[in-house]
Nucleic acid binder design. Structure first.
Lengths: 232, 232
DNA sequence: GAGGATAGGTGTACGGCGTATACTTGTCAA
DNA sequence: TTGACAAGTATACGCCGTACACCTATCCTC
């Protein structure tokens, strides 16, 4: 009956598994940045000794790879029936959404040098979309390089400043910089005025991402059509 | 005379300085990757105790920032008298050369969230070049986002695999992947055949960088001219 | 059932890291 | 001569990843 519980698995702390480890690592990183996903902290969160993780994950790098896979798995599959351009565009925007949910992920991807099978599958599908859209092998290759990390939904900005600075403090900072960096200051003023307030929220990152993506897709389309030479 | 040396500075080990610290850190990182530039290893290389560095550098992050500044300082100044497009292009290619000399630098730049004054100066000058070339404030802003990290001379590829794999081993690896990733495999074959051998050196990174850069500059130029509406 | 292989979790320990704190020592101005 | 100040040192702390040896439950085979 209910009093005899020890025959199940001694009040059964849910057993460890690779999946459970990766999921808690992702949650920890979401909440406290990538350094919150240390082996020790993940183990602590799971109520387990650090070395226990090593029965399910070879080492820290494999943990990071697994965490990336969790994120990549959140990217929507390609929508069937679309032309290459909207199809690629939709997929990349979906990737971006996944990355926005897990801000640590882009850095981790850059840190790792070998793509995981999950990432390769994603890339393969993306390349397939271009080929199906009529891209030559050569242009497909260039396209992959042109897109670079944007294929995974992120651009590396120099200014990806996620620190929570109060907007007026930011404005004061920029004002102090006016003399040393006149062109940046001018740009800052212009961006601020655009959205009505003197000290607006700055750039609309989503818009800028789509702008850059569109510019690249347009450029690639032009090259594709230019080299088509009468075929259909 | 030469026998009395102790009045100089006791056989004068050259004194520490911020500059000397940054330079040796850069050299160490060039030779052994960024993890070779730990506070302790830099100190060891300088024949000094780790804590000695802290008299010249506030902490590790400031060391990294300083190392970036060393790299950015290697970027050639803008060539005067050029139109915006070749001028921007030349500057970015120069930045790329600096980054190729210091392969750790792009990762470190991505890791740091706040740009240093040296980086800001570089950005300011780049923005100034666009403005001088007739870019509207708005388009300049977009251009900065479009270029992203390419302005600093690097693209984040997903495949920036610097490991030294023998080419035939790489070919075997790709062959093994043929079934799981048919599109990637097809692309690999195509790239390999392009340069004559079955297992060529793969992509010409310099060409791909310039291709992507050109595509972006062309796209930006088109937008600039399109919105000019008769001026000049 | 008995025995033993196997997988999953533990305990301890090591070497590396960044850096706080307190100290010595060498230099130079007053 | 003194004594302030800057430069370098010594020690120690807490964090990290992880090697290695150990225990223990489970289950398969005889």
């Amino acid at each position: 009956m209910a009093t005899r519980i020890e025959d199940g698995a001694t009040t059964a702390r849910e057993p460890l598994s690779r999946e459970r480890i990766l999921d808690t690592a992702v949650v920890l990183a979401d909440g406290g940045g990538i350094e919150a996903a240390s082996m020790r902290k993940v183990a602590l969160e799971l109520g387990v000794v650090p070395m226990a993780l090593y029965k399910h994950v070879a080492n820290k790098d494999e943990l990071l790879d697994g965490m990336i896979d969790v994120v990549v798995a959140e990217i929507d599959p390609p929508e069937p029936g679309l032309d290459w351009k909207p199809a690629v565009r939709a997929r990349i925007l979906s990737a971006r959404q996944a990355l926005l949910r897990h801000p640590w992920a882009s850095r981790v991807m850059e840190y790792r040098t070998q793509p995981t099978p999950t990432v390769l599958t994603y890339m393969d599908s993306m390349i397939g979309m271009l080929r199906a859209g009529g891209f030559s092998m050569d242009l497909t290759h260039h396209a992959v390089h042109v897109m670079g990390s944007r294929m995974m939904g992120f651009t590396q900005e120099l200014f990806n400043d996620t620190s929570e600075v109060p907007p007026d403090a930011e404005a004061a900072m920029f004002a102090a910089m006016a003399e040393a960096y006149p062109s940046i200051y001018e740009l800052f003023l212009s961006v601020s005025h655009d959205d009505g307030s003197v000290v607006g929220p700055g750039c609309d990152d989503q818009f800028e991402f789509e702008f850059a993506l569109g510019l690249m897709l347009d450029g690639l389309e032009r090259m594709k059509d230019g080299s088509e030479r009468g075929s259909r």
